[in-house]
Design a protein around this nucleic acid. Sequence first.
DNA 1: GAGTGGAGCGCC
DNA 2: AAAGGGCGCTCCACTC
Length: 574
Amino acid sequence: MQIAATYDPEGFKDRGFVQAISEEGDAAGQPRAVADLEAEIGTLEAASAPDAPDHPRWIWPATADLAPALLRRGVRVDRCHDLALTEALLVAYEGRCGAPRSLGAAWARLHGLPVPPDRAEGTLEAPADNPTTQPALFEPDRSGLPPDADPLRAVREVHAEQLRRIAATEHPGRFRLLVAAESAAALAAAEMAHHGLPWRADVHGEILAEILGPRPVDGSPPRAMAAATAELAAALGVRALNPDSAPQVTKAFADVGVKLPSLRRWDLEKIDHPAIPLLLKYKELSRLYSFNGWVWRDTWVVAGRFRPEYTVGGVVTGRWAARGGGALQIARRLRKAVIADPGWVFVAADAAQLEPRILAAMAQDPGMAEATQSDDMYAALAGVFEGSRDQAKLGLLGAMYGQTGGGAAAPLALMRRRFPKATALLDEAAREGERGRLVRSHLGRTCPPPSERWQSAIAGDAEADAADDSNRRSGQVARARGRFTRNFVIQATAAEWAEVLLALLRQRLRRLDGAQLVFFQHDEVLVHVPKEHAAAAAGMIGECAALAGRLVFGPGPVRFPMSVHSVECYGDAK
DNA sequence: GAGTGGAGCGCC
DNA sequence: AAAGGGCGCTCCACTC
C-alpha cells in the first residue's frame, strides 16, 4: 500500500496529511489531516508486518526532513519513495543535472510555474549536549511549495509524474531499482546518523597523548609539534619558521640551496636533505592535531558516539557525502577508538575489489568475469600481467581512472589486448565525455553536463589566434572530461550496487534484535550488534552482496565477495 | 574581519 | 613528454 504523507507547511510542526494512493499514483482514499504526522506514520507502520502485502510505502517529499524526527520518536519506517532524491535522479537523466529537486520545484516545473531554488541545507551545528534534543516547535518548511498549494495534491501529482518519467527511461526496471535503493539508502543514512558510531573519547585521548604529547592548556602547539618545528628550523639554519606556510618553507629551503617542486609529500620524499624528514614528520603530526585532535573529539564525540550527517546522492557519482567531522575520512590510526559497547561487536564488511568486479559485470567481459571467481582478482590475473599482481592492479585501476603513461603503460597495453570488452566499455565512456555527451551508470544515474569551462574551451578553440596553444588546452580539458566520464560509469555503478546491498541488509537486520547499521563508506559497512548475533549478521552480509549483484546485473558469473570480520575494535577489522 | 581559492592530506 | 576518478577538511594567502 502506498501512502502519501507530508507535513502541513502552514501549521505546527507535527501537523500533516496522509492519503492512500494506488500503484499507478492515483488517489485511492480520502485525504486526511492528522494532528501528529509522526505518530500517525508510527501507527500505520505498526499496523502490519513489514513483509505483509499491505504494508505502507511512504511517498513523501524528502526523507532527510522526516526520518530524523520519526527516529527520535522511535518510529522505524520500512520503505519509502523519496520525491526529492527521485527528482534529482530524473532531472539528471533528462540532462538537467543540478536543477532544483524539492517537491515545490518539481511541482512548479510540472505546472510551468517559476521554479524556486532548493533551500540551502543548514550548516551542521556541532551536536548539543543532549543528542536527543527536541526540535523547535515550528520547523522551517523546506518543501518549496507556494503557500496556497495543496501539499498532499502536490505530492500525488509529482509522484505520478515521476512514475511516468521513470517509465520513459531506456531501462525502466533498472531505474525503479535505483529509485528504491536510493530511497532506502536515505532511510539507512538517517538511522546511522541517529545511532552514531561508537567512539571512545578516552581511547582517542590516549592515541593523541602518545603521538602528540599532553594536551596543551593554552592553545599552543602540542609538545611533539613544537619539537618538530624547532628541529626543522635548526636544520634549515633559521631562527623561526611556520611549517604550515608554503612561502616560508619554500624560501628557507631555497636559502640552503634546495629547490622544492612542491610541498607535496610525494615530491618531498624524492629530495635528499636532512630537513625533509623533519618537515614530513611535522606535517603528519599537524594533520592529526588539526583534523582529529582534541578539538575534533570534544566537538563531535558526544555521549560515546560520533554523529556525522550523511547526504545520500551528495556526490555526482551517487556516493554519499558526509558533513561534520570528516566522517568518510576517518584516519586509520584513529579507528582504534571505535570500540563496540560491552557485550557487542562490530561486524565490519567491505566489498573486495569492487570496481573491477563492477567493470567485469557491466562489460560482460568473460576473462575478467572468470577472474572474479577468486577473492583476489589481482592475484588471479597476475598470470596475464607477466606474473605480477602489482602490474595487474595497475592495469585495471589505470584503465578505470584513465591513466595512460608512467609505469601503467605496459599493463594497460596488456589490459587492452586481454580484456577487449572491458576496455571498449571504458574507452566508449571516455569518448562520449570528450565529445561533451552524457554517460550513465548501469541503473541510469547520469553524469552532469560539461562545465562552462569545458564549453568555452572547446568554443574558444575555433576563434583563438594562438591555435596551437588553444588546441592543446582544449584537448586537455576534453581529455579531463573523458577521464571523468570513464570513471563515472564505474564509480556510479559501484555506488548503486553498494546502495542495493545496504537496502537489503537494512531489511534483513531487522530479524536480529538490536542490530544497528552504524557506518557506511562507499564499499564498506559496519554493523553494531550484540555478540550472539555476530555470526548471523556476517552471514546476512554475504547473502545480501550476492543478491545485490543479481538485482543490479541479473544472473551472471561475476562474484561480489565481501571480506567480513567480527571485531570489538574497528581498528582490528583490516 | 569575513569570504574565497589553492595547496595539501587522507579516505574510498 | 606526460597525461588517475570522487570527496571533506584545514591551513595559508589573498581580496574586499
